[in-house]
């Protein structure tokens, strides 16, 4: 028992250091990914010619390949093109990769939420002379936010879990710090990985709970206010009970 306490005290500082790195990377990833994803989602949500299918292809490309392979492509293949702008260090590659990876999910969520707003809302806004941008900003987005937020939380958890993969290109985040500590204490592999898992758990679990809470409450609020749309052709509602990834 004393042995474990000693090891715990010995490894905790460096593991926490790794955790701060993980936290920073995941926050940067969610910021970048949300920004890209939000812009693309706005476009994809409203059937704009050429752009909507183009973004669809982008989504499929990102959905269809593993994050590890995307990371290898960004880290090994892009610097190999010879363009000096693309010869980045591992941190830049990782942040870019995480942002792009996250953006695919955010795009889908935002465009889904925009399409979930009945067409009558658009038509009503156009009828009183609002322009497209005004309609989006004043009518559509305020109603979509409550649909976007819960799903965004589970994307965030996905992103946190994906940051463990960036340890393979030498970013010293939590998983990598665990490996380094295992080199120091090779006899306690299991114990050190258990601590690492616990730190991840303490980070992800509250977010997951928040997602559940948001889904329950945000959904209820919206359902209470929802009125049937007189216009057919509004797309299917998004809040079908779906499985959170």
């Amino acid at each position: 028992m004393e042995h474990y306490i000693d090891i715990f005290q010995a490894v905790l500082p460096s593991l926490l250091e790794g955790f701060w790195r993980t936290l920073g990377i995941s926050l940067a990833g969610i910021l970048g990914g949300s920004l890209i994803g939000f812009l693309l989602g706005l476009v994809r949500g409203q059937h704009i010619r050429y752009f909507t299918p183009l973004i669809g292809g982008y989504l499929h490309l990102l959905r269809g390949t593993p994050f590890l392979v995307q990371l290898y492509v960004v880290y090994f293949v892009l610097p190999n093109t010879g363009i000096s702008l693309l010869m980045w260090d591992s941190l830049t590659a990782v942040l870019l990769c995480l942002a792009i990876y996250t953006s695919s999910y955010v795009t889908e969520i935002v465009s889904g939420a925009i399409r979930a707003i009945p067409r009558g809302q658009w038509e009503g806004a156009f009828a009183i002379g609002m322009r497209r941008g005004q309609t989006l900003w004043h009518i559509i987005l305020p109603q979509s936010v409550m649909l976007i937020l819960p799903s965004l939380g589970s994307v965030y958890v996905n992103l946190i879990k994906a940051t463990s993969i960036v340890s393979v290109v030498g970013i010293s985040e939590l998983t990598r710090q665990g490996e380094i500590n295992i080199l120091r204490f090779p006899g306690d592999i299991l114990f050190i990985y258990a601590i690492v898992a616990m730190i991840y758990f303490c980070y992800c679990f509250p977010v997951l709970k928040l997602v559940d809470w948001l889904e329950k409450n945000a959904g209820r609020q919206r359902a209470a206010r929802k009125r049937p749309s007189p216009t057919p052709g509004g797309s299917a509602p998004l809040n079908e009970p779906n499985v959170k990834a």
């Binding site: 879990k161 463990s164 993969i165 990985y193 898992a197 997951l208």
Partner: peptide, 12 residues
């Protein structure tokens, strides 16, 4: 399982 990364689970 949902709150920990797959890579870590594989290592464990």
């Amino acid at each position: 399982i949902r709150s920990t990364p797959l890579l870590l689970q594989i290592y464990i």
